[in-house]
């Protein structure tokens, strides 16, 4: 009953044509300066509310997760005909190619698996868009604002049924380290075995 009435409210709320909108790629592009200035304010805002670099990175990651969770559905509908990935390697390629193109205008530079650990993968970017205009102060040299991107990736993986932890590091440029849950790898192996 309760659900019904809220549904009604939503549909009768009006002409908000939001549900009718086409999901095709929007034509308008904004300038990178506009984004960079906005992102810089976001970093500063977060910085004022934390005590350490790792807290700051967590905050940025949380904001990224908001973005990732929302962009996932639209990209799956638009680029994959609504079909979701079920294999680890496919979801990783989806992120490296499709997601990166949609968000940053190009594929990610590299996707690698850790030699010694089947749970761990890396997405490597020489010059991540997010960091284009950011210079990291010496005293905070571990700070990598690509934590925001890490959050985007983490939410996309988790919402797709691949729970993982994603963190950003300075290594060969910027490396996003993806650590999948044990269960994800176990399931993937089971799927292979069939």
């Amino acid at each position: 009953m309760c659900i019904n009435s809220t549904m009604d409210a939503r549909f009768t709320r009006g002409k908000s044509a939001i549900l009718e909108r086409s999901l095709t790629r929007p034509k308008t592009d904004v300038s990178l300066s506009a984004f960079s200035l906005l992102f810089s304010e976001i970093v500063q805002y977060c910085q004022n509310r934390v005590y350490s670099v790792s807290e700051l990175q967590n905050k940025l990651s949380e904001l990224g997760q908001q973005v990732g969770a929302r962009i996932l559905d639209v990209l799956v509908m638009r680029e994959k005909n609504g079909k979701r990935e079920t294999k680890v390697i496919n979801i990783l390629l989806f992120i490296k190619v499709t997601v990166w193109k949609a968000l940053f205008g190009k594929e990610a530079d590299k996707l690698e698996q850790a030699n010694d650990d089947d749970k761990t993968y890396y997405i490597i970017e020489k010059e991540p868009l997010i960091n284009t205009y950011i210079s990291v102060p010496k005293e905070n040299s571990t700070l990598n604002c690509a934590s925001f991107t890490a959050g985007i990736v983490e939410a996309m993986l988790t919402c797709s049924g691949f729970p993982a932890k994603v963190t950003a590091h300075w290594h060969k440029g910027t490396t996003l380290m993806i650590k999948f849950d044990e269960s994800v790898i176990a399931r993937d192996k089971a799927l292979d075995g069939r």
Partner: peptide, 20 residues
């Protein structure tokens, strides 16, 4: 010439900020 980027990333990033 100023570089362009995805308006979706911009829009969603702004949305994440407002939500926060």
């Amino acid at each position: 010439e100023s570089k362009k980027m995805s308006s979706e990333l911009f829009t969603l990033t702004y949305g994440a900020l407002v939500t926060q």
